[in-house]
């Protein structure tokens, strides 16, 4: 397989809840390769969400090293992490998380606004919406769209900055199985066409089964990596 886009070694994460220390990750190491579709599974409390937050650069590990797309990011300051997220990570959430007041186009444009790129911003956002099959919904607002369409907008938003990885947190969790499958098909198609690395965090075995590899987490370490 190709070179790894994510190299995480010995990640630990300790939360302090009052006087009690909670060890969410206990020396977890994982590699994810460019162009791969990886599913992260695990029961609640396994450290799955913590891992996703760290891999998505939303949170710092307590210890360990994390290299994303060739850059060490474990010890970056918050604003530097913001820049990394902006350039290298696309997020897809279970509850879509669109700005309800703004049109689909403005929502997709949002990451470009924070990246400071001004040229072709409109055009790139429009192209991303076309890529997810929403060319006729460009000026609609989220409440005028169905759940599946909203998630497509979210996918376009995740893609628009050409990120190194896309983190999808239960992307089909709020959708019925038919629409959910359409979203999965779209994600897999984008992965195939554009070669974007896709990391899906899910409970759903049917979703996980469509990934190239399932990484199972238990008690803060990798239990198995079914290749």
């Amino acid at each position: 397989m190709a070179e790894p886009v994510i190299v995480a070694e010995n990640l630990t994460k300790v939360y302090k809840m009052g006087d009690v220390e909670v060890h969410a990750l206990r020396g977890l190491s994982v590699k994810i390769y460019r162009g791969e579709v990886a599913a992260i599974m695990g029961p609640s409390g396994s450290g799955k969400s913590t891992l996703m937050n760290i891999l998505g650069c939303l949170d710092h590990p307590s210890a360990g090293s994390y290299q994303l797309d060739g850059e060490q990011v474990a010890h970056l300051r918050d604003d530097q992490l913001s820049a990394i997220r902006n350039r290298k990570v696309g997020f897809i959430f279970q509850s879509f998380n669109l700005l309800s007041r703004q049109t689909a186009l403005s929502n997709v444009e949002l990451p470009l606004r924070y990246s400071g790129k001004t040229e072709n911003r409109r055009q790139r956002a429009r192209q991303a919406l076309i890529d997810v099959g929403l060319e006729d919904r460009i000026t609609h607002r989220p409440y005028e769209l169905s759940g599946g369409q909203q998630q497509r907008v979210a996918i376009a938003r995740a893609l628009v900055n050409d990120p190194a990885i896309i983190m999808a947190d239960e992307p089909t969790g709020n959708l019925d199985s038919k629409v959910g499958q359409e979203i999965m098909d779209l994600l897999l198609k984008l992965n195939k066409d554009k070669g974007t690395t896709l990391i899906i965090v899910t409970h759903d075995p049917k979703v996980a089964a469509q990934a190239g590899r399932i990484i199972r987490i238990r008690d803060g370490v990798v239990e198995s990596e079914g290749l």
């Binding site: 913001s82 997220r85 902006n86 997020f91 959430f93 700005l99 924070y114 990246s115």
Partner: peptide, 16 residues
């Protein structure tokens, strides 16, 4: 709060 979280996830800095 969620909107702020989202904006930060998408790359908004503290200053933004």
């Amino acid at each position: 709060t969620r909107e702020i979280g989202l904006r930060k996830a998408l790359g908004a800095r503290k200053r933004d």
